[in-house]
């Protein structure tokens, strides 16, 4: 089994729902974004268009971040293909951040909260497991997936632009969409074999 995600760029309206759902799910501090939406303008007036690209950890089949980790804190689970970081093992050398060609890793080096009066009870509860001075990233909401749910960004996408499933199963919806709609990963030339695919807009 290899968990993967397909994001339909034609459906994405850049509402940031995925980013907020992810923040609510993981309680990530300011400066840490497991899911982000990039905006990009192409062309010149009068034929200009704005493109949106939701990004997250690509959970690569050949993850360069795992190869450069000196302690094995970054690892890939061969059973489901999820790449995760063990904060108890990470030493904070940030080699993985320099190796990730998708810039989807963040260093959590300061105690931060969103409001000047201090952390809210929600932040305190959600961030209780977060460790400082370690690298953080998306783990495909593996706890939710283990409980039979979809990742938070998928479950909360208002336009159903995200589909989550098993890439190894040729009959899964993700495999079908990639095949029928010409799904493509980011930077395939690097040979990282990402598990996140995009459907052309």
């Amino acid at each position: 089994m290899r968990w993967g995600m397909v994001i339909d760029l034609k459906r994405c309206i850049a509402c940031y729902g995925c980013q907020l759902a992810c923040k609510a799910e993981h309680g990530t501090p300011p400066g840490v974004f497991f899911a982000r939406v990039l905006k990009h303008e192409e062309g010149q007036f009068p034929s200009v268009r704005q493109l949106f690209l939701p990004v997250l950890c690509n959970h690569c089949e050949e993850p360069p971040c795992v190869d450069v980790c000196p302690t094995g804190a970054s690892s890939k689970n061969d059973a489901d293909g999820i790449v995760s970081i063990d904060p108890d093992v990470c030493v904070g050398c940030r080699s993985c951040m320099m190796a990730c060609p998708y810039s989807n890793r963040y260093f959590n080096d300061k105690p931060q909260h969103y409001f000047p009066q201090g952390p809210t009870p929600f932040e305190q509860r959600r961030g209780a497991d977060h460790q400082r001075d370690v690298v953080m990233k998306c783990n495909f909401c593996k706890d939710r997936v283990a409980a039979g749910k979809e990742p938070a960004c998928v479950a909360n996408c208002v336009t159903v632009a995200r589909v989550f499933g098993d890439l190894d199963d040729p009959n899964s919806e993700v495999s079908r969409l990639i095949k029928e709609r010409g799904g493509f990963p980011l930077h395939p030339e690097l040979g990282t074999k990402p598990s996140v695919y995009y459907l052309p807009a």
Binding site: D67, V68, C69, T71, C90, V91
Partner: peptide
């Protein structure tokens, strides 16, 4: 430089083939 200098011994205990190791 390390985020967690006190954990350097983990690089010894879990020697990997990374260049940092």
């Amino acid at each position: 430089f390390l985020g967690r200098p006190a954990r350097f011994w983990r690089m010894v205990r879990q020697q990997k083939t990374a260049w940092v190791s």
